[in-house]
């Protein structure tokens, strides 16, 4: 009988040993972005959404970044064979273009 604790331990062990460093980096980045989004949302609910454009820009930037980074993770993950025909550099380049466009929009919108 496998307990929940054992399950978590097994997951942690296999994550630390089998996941490539690249993906770990991406995961750390994703967690950071998510924290930012959550903090902004709490601030908006608790204090004020008054410059609503600023909230939309800040929160939207976090969400969009999260989506782009998650896409990058899917594409560079060697386990996902459907992307094996394309180089991870291409995925990274797409990621760069998307993020830079996003930041351009955010800067304009945040006021």
């Amino acid at each position: 009988m496998v307990t929940v604790t054992q399950l978590v331990q097994q997951f942690q062990k296999s994550y630390w040993t089998q996941t490539p460093l690249q993906l770990k980096l991406i995961d750390a980045y994703l967690v950071a972005i998510m924290l930012q989004g959550v903090l902004q949302f709490i601030y908006c609910l608790a204090i004020s959404s008054f410059p609503y454009n600023a909230f939309l820009a800040g929160f939207g930037a976090a969400v969009a970044s999260f989506v782009f980074t998650a896409s990058l993770r899917i594409q560079v993950n060697p386990k996902n064979t459907e992307y094996s025909h394309q180089a991870p550099e291409r995925a990274f380049a797409e990621f760069l273009v998307c993020q830079l466009t996003l930041f351009f929009i955010v800067t304009n919108y945040i006021g």
């Binding site: 980045y29 600023a54 800040g58 930041f103």
Partner: peptide, 24 residues
């Protein structure tokens, strides 16, 4: 109106997002 005090968390958040992107 720009640079409102109540909007600073959003500015900081957007800025830190860009910095963390560079670091990444």
């Amino acid at each position: 109106d720009r640079y409102l005090v109540s909007a600073y968390p959003y500015y900081i958040s957007a800025g830190s997002l860009m910095v963390s992107f560079l670091v990444f």
